[in-house]
C-alpha cells in the first residue's frame, strides 16, 4: 500500500499552519493503523526550518517546493505541483485543511486526478466495505465522516476504487499532538524548473490583508454561550475553556454583553448574530425571545441554569440544573479524558 500525504499550509511567518499540524497528527495515526508512511507536501517561500517544524509530528518524507512565486498561495502553481507529485507518488490517502486554501486547492486536484473528495470531514477512520451487489470486499478504506444536509445527518463517505482517497478537514477538528520530538524523516526537494509554466501565473495577487485571528461565531458548529447568570469574568473563562477543548466558539446574550462580561462581537440574538450550530450550550441564559430568535434553530440545545423555570429550558433538549462554575469543569474534564 502507498502512503498518506498531508498538504501543509504555510502562513505569513513562514510557519506551518495549525490546521496542517493537526492533520499531520491525525495522518500519523492513520499511517500507523495502515502500516504506511506519512509524507508532507510543503509549498511556499521563506519557510523557516521546515524539518524542525514538522518531523516531530511523525513525518517520514517532506516534499518541499520553494520559490518566490509560490507565496502567497495561488491556485494554479500549487495545483500543478500537487497533481504532478500525486501522479508520481500515487498516494493512498491525501488530506487538506478545509480552509480558504484547502477548499480552493483540493477540488481542483481531485478533478485533475479524477478521484473522490469529501469536504469538511469531522472524523476520519479506517474500515472495510463490502459492496452489496457484487459482494466484493474492500479492505482498509478511509471512512470520511461528515455532517450533511445542513447538519441534520452524518454521512460516512468512501472512495472504493479511486486513489488517492481525498478529504478536507476543518481547523480544530483533529487534535494537535507531537508524535516524537526526535523523529526524523527525509527531505525531498521538488524540481520546479520543468513543472511550472507561464500559464500557472495567470492570476496575480495585487493586495492582501490577513488578520491573525478573528471571531467566527456564525460559522461555528458548536457554540458555548453565556448570559447574565454566568456572573463573573472568571466564570466566563470556563466557557472559553470548554469551547476550546470541544472545538467551538463563545457566544453571549445581550445581558452578558451589557454587563461587560464579554465583547459585543459575540452577541447572539435579534440584535446580534443569528446562529444555527449543531450544538448550542446556553450557560446562565434565561432565554428571552430576542435571544431565542438568534439561536432556536440550533440542532441541539443544552441549557445550564440554576433556575428550573428559565424559558430557555423549554426549547432545550437537555437542561442541567446547577451552577455554571461547577458544571463546566466537569464537562471539560470528561471530554479531555474520553475524546479520541
Amino acid at each position: 500500500m502507498n502512503n498518506i500525504f498531508v498538504y501543509c499550509e504555510v502562513n505569513e511567518d513562514g510557519l506551518i499552519a495549525d490546521v496542517s499540524l493537526e492533520l499531520l497528527s491525525k495522518g500519523r495515526k492513520l499511517a500507523n493503523d495502515l502500516n504506511i508512511k506519512l509524507e508532507a507536501v510543503v509549498i511556499g517561500d521563506q519557510i523557516q526550518n521546515i524539518e524542525n517544524q514538522i518531523y516531530p509530528y511523525g513525518v517520514d518524507v517532506i516534499h518541499l517546493a520553494q520559490d518566490a512565486r509560490l507565496f502567497p498561495y495561488t491556485t494554479l502553481p500549487h495545483s500543478s505541483i500537487v497533481v504532478n507529485l500525486f501522479k508520481e507518488e500515487k498516494p493512498e490517502i491525501a488530506i487538506f485543511g478545509a480552509t480558504s486554501v484547502g477548499r480552493d486547492l483540493a477540488p481542483r486536484v481531485a478533478s485533475a486526478l479524477r478521484c473522490g473528495l469529501t469536504a469538511d470531514c469531522t472524523s476520519l477512520e479506517i474500515g472495510d466495505h463490502t459492496e452489496n451487489k457484487t459482494q466484493k470486499t474492500y479492505k482498509n478504506l478511509l471512512y470520511q465522516i461528515r455532517p450533511a444536509f445542513g447538519g441534520n445527518i452524518i454521512a460516512t463517505i468512501i472512495n472504493p476504487d479511486t486513489r488517492p482517497q481525498m478529504a478536507t478537514v476543518r481547523e480544530g477538528v483533529m487534535k494537535l499532538e507531537i508524535f516524537s520530538p526526535n523523529y526524523k524523516g527525509k527531505l525531498k526537494k521538488i524540481n520546479l524548473e520543468k513543472l511550472l509554466k507561464e500559464d500557472d501565473f495567470l492570476v496575480e495577487i495585487l493586495e492582501r490583508h490577513i488578520e491573525s485571528q478573528k471571531i467566527n461565531i456564525k460559522g461555528a458548529q458548536i457554540i458555548v454561550a453565556g448570559g447574565y447568570g454566568v456572573g463573573t469574568k472568571e466564570n466566563f473563562d470556563l466557557l472559553y475553556q470548554l469551547a476550546d477543548v470541544i472545538g467551538g466558539e463563545v457566544g453571549a446574550s445581550r445581558a452578558a454583553v451589557d454587563a461587560g462580561l464579554v465583547d459585543h462581537a459575540r452577541q447572539i440574538g435579534q440584535t446580534g448574530i443569528t446562529v444555527r450550530p449543531k450544538l448550542y450550550i446556553a450557560c446562565g441564559i434565561s432565554g428571552a425571545v430576542q435571544h431565542r430568535a438568534g439561536m432556536d434553530q440550533s440542532a441541539k440545545i443544552i441549557s445550564i441554569n440554576n433556575d428550573p423555570k428559565a424559558p430557555i429550558n423549554k426549547i432545550a433538549d437537555y437542561t442541567i440544573i446547577g451552577n455554571v462554575g461547577d458544571i463546566l469543569p466537569k464537562m471539560i474534564k470528561y471530554y479531555k479524558e474520553n475524546s479520541k
Binding site: 473522490g116 441534520n152 445527518i153 463517505i157 468512501i158 441541539k300
Partner: peptide, 26 residues
C-alpha cells in the same frame, strides 16, 4: 461516474418532545 459512495447515513437529531432534566451530579 462518482468516485465517492455513501456508505452510511445517521440521523443526528434526536426527537425530544420535552427537555431532559439533569442534575450537576458527575
Amino acid at each position: 461516474g462518482s468516485p465517492t459512495k455513501v456508505k452510511k447515513i445517521e440521523n443526528v437529531v434526536l426527537q425530544q418532545k420535552e427537555t431532559i432534566l439533569l442534575t450537576e451530579a458527575d
